[in-house]
Design a protein around this nucleic acid. Structure first.
Lengths: 106, 106
DNA sequence: TGCGAATATGTCAGTTCTGACAGATGTTGT
DNA sequence: ACAACATCTGTCAGAACTGACATATTCGCA
């Protein structure tokens, strides 16, 4: 893993343990993290395409601007539930969602 | 919505309000619920195919058998995070996951 | 440059989700 | 019928996540 990427992830609250990760001991968490990152990207892309502000999207999902910012930033304090909810509310299609989960770049 | 399905969902802790749902006021929650159900089905199918017991899968994800049962039952007390984590741990492929999220039957 | 709008970051009390446990209810083989 | 195993259902204290708020930073644009 690139040191840059690693640092970025740790800033967001993810502990990227070299041992476990490198040895593939925690493949599941790694895959889940990829999904989280994809969803965060999809969220930003979708909201942006729909020309919604974070504040407007927050209203749609009954949340706050700051939480949307965290969602898009891939902060660790945010659940996949809310991530998916937001992506849907932003107006992403089912296939966009599927692609994100499958790990395919748009 | 079929009355049977409705009753089943309510048993699991989901409030399926006719008004909101019928008027499509809460399309987002409805879509999220579909995803949850798909993931629950995928989890059971995958675990079963791999011949894992609920107990064994629980160990893999550091959880308990009872929670796995709830995951597969589509209980409302369970998060999408854990659902996805479990599906991955059970050994589902990325494309299986994508299909579930896209709402397509296997 | 300065100003307003959008976004980012930090904190926190209240809510939700969690693993663990107990016990009930299948299921399978003898 | 019985035992052994698997699954289901309910409960609860502790952990994780939440919206709200304050505040900082970045981004146009005149």
């Amino acid at each position: 893993m690139r040191p840059g990427k690693r640092k970025r992830l740790e800033k967001l609250g993810w502990s990227v343990g070299d041992t476990a990760e490198f040895l593939g001991l925690d493949e599941v968490e790694s895959k889940l993290l990829d999904i989280r990152i994809s969803l965060a990207r999809l969220l930003r892309a979708t909201r942006s395409r729909r020309r919604l502000t974070q504040f407007e999207l927050a209203e749609k999902i009954g949340s706050s601007q700051s939480r949307v910012a965290k969602l898009e930033a891939g902060d660790s304090s945010v659940s996949v539930d809310l991530l998916v909810r937001s992506v849907i509310a932003a107006g992403a299609s089912a296939s966009d969602l599927a692609k994100a989960v499958a790990g395919k770049r748009k």
